[in-house]
Simulated scan of single mutants.
Amino acid sequence: MTSYRVPDTALPSQRALLTDRAVVTEAYTVIPRGVLRDIVTSVLPEWTGTRTWVINRPVAGGATTFAQYLVEVAPGGGSEQPEPEPEVQSFVFVMAGGLTVRFGDETHVLEPGGFAYLPPGADWSVRNAGEELAWFSWIRKHHEPLAGHEPRARFGNERDIEPDAMPDTDGTWRTTRMLPTDDLAYDMHCNVVTFEPGASIPFAETHIMEHGLLMLEGKAVYHLNGDWVEVEAGDYLSLRAFCPQACYAGGPGQFRYLLYKDVNRQVRLTPGGGR
């Protein structure tokens, strides 16, 4: 059974040494799980019983296409109006507990591994109707509309989707695609990527797509813009466009992460029309 790491939010002991792996560079940011503590949370408008860790937002010199949060919702908490911007689409991925998501007249109960894609302008709400804390990752992106292609809401669980083996890997590198990759209505992909111990990305991917990578399980070593960076479940990477990237899965179990990337749109060259 797969698992999904959530933060240990209590403050470290006053006896702890000030050492960690957090780093911000011109090409990538590493937010290790050990820095996601109680004192760095936000309380969002229109939400109750909720704490939020903002782990990515558009910044100059960094990733600019999306925001990503880790959200903890207490029993009874949630929001009737979670999204304040009608042009923004959302992807919700549950890691612990359960969430009830209402979309129009539909109601979906999401357990760990469950996801919801909510298109721009959607009427939706979210509530923790259970008795335990719920944890989810929330990805928000301004949707770039394309005439004749309208995205639709999607719900499911990554555990119920057959992953696609990457070519020539004997299935040791697999991708679970939660949004359709061949539909131009969607200008982002949200996948769960799985590596068996010792599997690798054997070349330095260097491409226009920005990435948000939330480590769900296991550990690995990433090669980012010439640097070797160790990551483990609970860590987060934000990669700007064209950051060279490769990795080796470290074992002893699977290495898995939730991946965001922006896709399927032309590069904007007019003033103020950045990608």
Rank of each mutant, 00 (worst) to 15 (best):
L118W: 07
Y236T: 04
A204Q: 14
Q266T: 15
P45F: 12
F66A: 08
A16C: 15
H108R: 11
W124C: 01
M188I: 04
Q266C: 15
H108G: 02
V267Y: 15
V73P: 02
F66R: 08
Y28S: 03
M1A: 05
R57A: 06
E144H: 06
L110G: 05
V71L: 06
A67M: 06
P84R: 13
T65K: 03
I139M: 08
G156E: 14
G113Y: 04
F195W: 00
A122S: 15
A16Y: 05
I201M: 01
L44V: 09
N128C: 02
G171A: 10
W47G: 12
G226N: 10
A233W: 03
R154W: 07
V94R: 01
P112C: 09
D168N: 15
P252V: 12
M95E: 09
C247R: 03
D164Y: 14
R15A: 11
H143L: 08
E83L: 10
W173V: 08
F93I: 00
Y260V: 00
R51T: 08
I208E: 10
N225Y: 00
A241R: 13
E217N: 02
G121M: 09
A22Y: 04
A16Q: 09
M1Y: 00
V88N: 08
R275D: 03
W124Y: 15
G234Y: 00
P7T: 03
E26T: 06
A220E: 03
D182S: 09
D8P: 07
P45K: 15
E196T: 13
W47H: 08
T19S: 11
